[in-house]
Amino acid sequence: MPKRKNVYLPSALLVALFLIVWQALAMGMDAAYILPSPVQVVLRLWALRGPLFTAHLPATMSVTLIGLGFSLALGVALALLMDASPTAEHALYPLIVASQTIPTTALAPLFVLWFGYTIWSKVLVTVLMTFFPVVITVFDGFRSVRTDMIDLMTTFGATRGQIFRKLKLPAALPYFFSALKMAVPLSIIGAAIGEWLGAQEGLGYFSRRMMTQLDGAGVFAPILLLSLVAMALVGVVSLLEKRAVTWRGE
């Protein structure tokens, strides 16, 4: 499909330009501990592939996936509760919004005190960063249902459960995928930050350790890896979305 390629050509050119400028700047400065060049970062990633892929990537991914799972469960559960009961909505919605004013990164050291260097301090950081867009977006999805469609189903004699299953759930599905696309990168960032602030393994921890060794390319290598993984996961979610939501924009 040549047409499709043309669509992404400008962004590809922009990325290429950015990398060339970065490379030139880094070569000009010639101080890899401050600004490593893209080539150095890729080479370092290759050199460190052993520990990165066998130990640190799996550690970060398990925090990410567990955190994402909890965030989705918590977010969807809260959205369901607020949709089912206006009282719950009035009680919870302001609190959920207020929870986002808490500087999670500042609290993370506290979580290490509570949970030690276990996986759970990192999972908590991940969940606190990720559940918010899930609950807000999925709740918006339930609320996006047209009242005249609910009326129509009521005249057909539908029960509340039937209205939920046959109308609200499918109507909220595109919103769920939007939430997922926001949640995946956020949970990876959350895991990395959690590891940065207190861990014994993981890409965030590894990046920080390279920092203390003034290894600029070593700081960037795990970050590059994280970005690539995040992009791949969002790509997978987009593919799933294309299969599940065939009616978006109608």
């Binding site: 004699g157 046959k166 065939t246």
Partner: peptide, 29 residues
């Protein structure tokens, strides 16, 4: 279920095919 109500806008569910939309009142009953 004493009446069949048809609103101004067709309100066909976009995620269902035409046939599945027609099935809706039968499924509910």
């Amino acid at each position: 279920r004493w009446c069949g109500y048809m609103p101004q806008s067709d309100l066909l569910f976009p995620w269902r095919t035409v046939g599945q939309n027609l099935r809706l009142p039968l499924e509910l009953r």
